[in-house]
Amino acid sequence: MEMNASYTSLVAVGDSFTEGMSDALPDGSYRGWADLLAARLAERTPGFRYANLAVRGKLIGQIVDEQVPLAAAMQADVVTLVGGLNDTLRPKVDMGRVRDKLTEAVEQLAPSCKQLVLMRSPGRNGPVMKRFRPRMEELFAVVDELAAKHDAVVVDLYGAAALGDQRMWSVDRLHLTPEGHRRVAEAVWQSLGMDAVDDWLTPLPAAAPLGWTARRTGDLRFAREHLVPWVGRRITGKSSGDGRPAKRPELLPFEAPRD
């Protein structure tokens, strides 16, 4: 498909990043960058259709088994695939298997759509990012290789300093804020050849550093509300997405939820 063409449909595949956590709406559901992108594309094309198959917590093997065949069958104009990062955050990971599963996903999706979009996911600056950076970069090398082979677009969020800013991340330190999701939507929009609405790479204004008390309070809240439950799920082998359906499982005309 020619870039900047009239896209008539979008299917989003992946995990919590694509589901939209933590861009919460008043009813408690999540919006996220994929919904924002769909809303923009729908403004250009009457009857635009959208499906979002992403479910929080999913590993790349689960994405391939549960989402990829459904997405491929939808024959959408645009498919976005972001997966594998949850695997890299596990204490132990077989990166060879991650590569094989990601390859399997791309090989199924690329022929099924007119434009496949892959991403180098963003990462929050801090000790967790530093610890897992080698695995992430190994994953992104695979993304780049597959994109070159299958003529997919790669959106480089990992290389964007603005998205590493801790203020772009929610209190759980794993998911983007609404502003972060808005910037990702703009990045994908531009990658599809659309005219820029703004510069998603613009850094946030400088802010005074937090004092010791504020930092410790934030750390304690994070540990209590997010870290302990996350570790508990790792120990028990459970996932936050177990039993959870996709929020938009069918490719249907898009209507934006109200804020």
Rank of each mutant, 00 (worst) to 15 (best):
N4R: 14
F17Y: 14
F17S: 15
F17D: 10
M21N: 02
L25E: 04
R31T: 00
G32Y: 05
W33N: 01
W33F: 15
W33K: 00
A34R: 05
D35L: 01
L37N: 08
L37I: 11
A38I: 12
A38Y: 09
Y50L: 03
A51Q: 10
N52D: 15
A54L: 10
Q67P: 11
V68C: 05
V68Q: 06
V68E: 03
L70G: 01
A71M: 12
A72S: 08
Q75L: 14
V78A: 06
G83L: 06
L85M: 13
L89Q: 11
K92E: 14
V93Q: 04
R97L: 12
V98I: 08
E104T: 02
E104F: 01
E107W: 09
Q108R: 15
L109M: 06
A110L: 12
L118I: 00
G123D: 15
G123H: 14
R124S: 04
N125T: 11
R131T: 15
R131D: 04
P134F: 04
L139S: 12
L139A: 12
V142W: 15
D144E: 12
E145M: 01
A152K: 04
A152L: 09
A161K: 06
A162K: 07
D165R: 09
M168P: 13
M168T: 13
W169P: 07
D172T: 05
L174A: 11
L174D: 05
H175V: 11
H181D: 15
A185E: 09
A185V: 13
E186V: 03
A187W: 07
D195Q: 15
W200V: 04
L201D: 09
P203H: 03
A206M: 07
A206K: 12
A207Y: 07
P209Y: 13
G211T: 04
G218I: 07
L220P: 05
F222Q: 06
F222K: 05
E225K: 03
H226L: 01
V228S: 06
P229V: 07
V231P: 01
V231N: 02
G232E: 11
R233K: 15
D242E: 07
K247V: 07
P249C: 04
L252Y: 00
E255I: 13
A256F: 03
